[in-house]
Computed example of a mutant assay.
Amino acid sequence: MSRALRLVAAMVIACTGLVLSVSAPASAACTCKQGQLAQQVKKADVVFIGTVDAVGSEGQGHTYTVTASRAYQGTPERSTLVTSPGPDACGLGALKVGTTYVWLATGTASPYTADSCGGTGVANPTKVQKVETLLGEGTPVAPPPPPEAVLTKVEESAPPRFTRMAAPGAAAALIGLLGLVVVRRLARR
């Protein structure tokens, strides 16, 4: 073989190796098949409607802060967290803040886990109707009750006397009257 032919063969092999190595990560991408909604609901531990309030990144995955409004399966809290793996593991990606989704997630408590194979998607009327056909109307997720007020004494002394409390108001009224007298005198000139 001539030197030029060997050089061309080496270039072809190098280019082929480069193409194969660059395309290798594509084979590690998500390969799940979207199942029927009934199957996805059976696999899910919690099914609820919730609006994305914030999206955080963890490595290649994401964490979503979600305000749940209606629960169909499981008992999510009003404000809950859902995590999703990176795109190679069928993650949901950076969902849009302010958008309402039907969440089909796994886990017994927050943070739940959801992926693109599980059926989580935008809460359009068709999807909500299909979920309600399978699981019923669901129940509203109520916000937690407000914290109970606790009386805390500032100090053990008696409250201030009336004259001390009324003094700033009396001073303001006196200044206002003096200003009125000055303005009327200037207006007469």
Rank of each mutant, 00 (worst) to 15 (best):
L174V: 12
S69V: 13
L95D: 02
A109S: 12
A28I: 03
L37S: 12
T100F: 03
Y112N: 00
K33P: 04
A54K: 15
Q73P: 00
Q36D: 12
H62A: 14
G50C: 09
R189E: 09
G93C: 09
E156N: 15
P76F: 08
S27V: 05
P144S: 11
R161H: 10
S79P: 00
P87G: 08
Y72D: 05
V47C: 07
L5T: 10
A172F: 11
G118R: 09
G91K: 03
L186V: 13
T83N: 11
T108G: 07
T126W: 05
L18R: 14
T16P: 06
S57G: 06
P125G: 00
G61E: 02
Q129C: 11
L180P: 03
S116K: 09
S2P: 04
G118I: 13
V66D: 09
R78C: 09
G50V: 00
K127F: 03
T100V: 03
P144W: 02
A54E: 14
L134W: 04
T65E: 10
L92M: 01
S110R: 02
G74E: 04
T106V: 15
T99Y: 08
R78W: 01
P85K: 03
V19D: 06
R189I: 04
P147D: 02
T152I: 07
G17P: 00
E137Y: 01
A68S: 14
S27H: 12
V55L: 07
A38F: 12
L135H: 00
A158E: 06
G121Y: 04
P145T: 13
F162C: 13
P25N: 06
G136I: 01
P159C: 02
Q129D: 14
G56I: 02
V122I: 07
A171E: 00
V55W: 11
T75D: 01
A109T: 09
L174F: 10
V82T: 10
T133Y: 08
G138R: 03
Q34Y: 01
I49H: 07
V41D: 00
D53W: 02
G119S: 07
T83H: 13
V46Q: 09
M165E: 07
I13A: 15
T152N: 10
V47M: 02
Q40I: 04
K43P: 03
T133A: 08
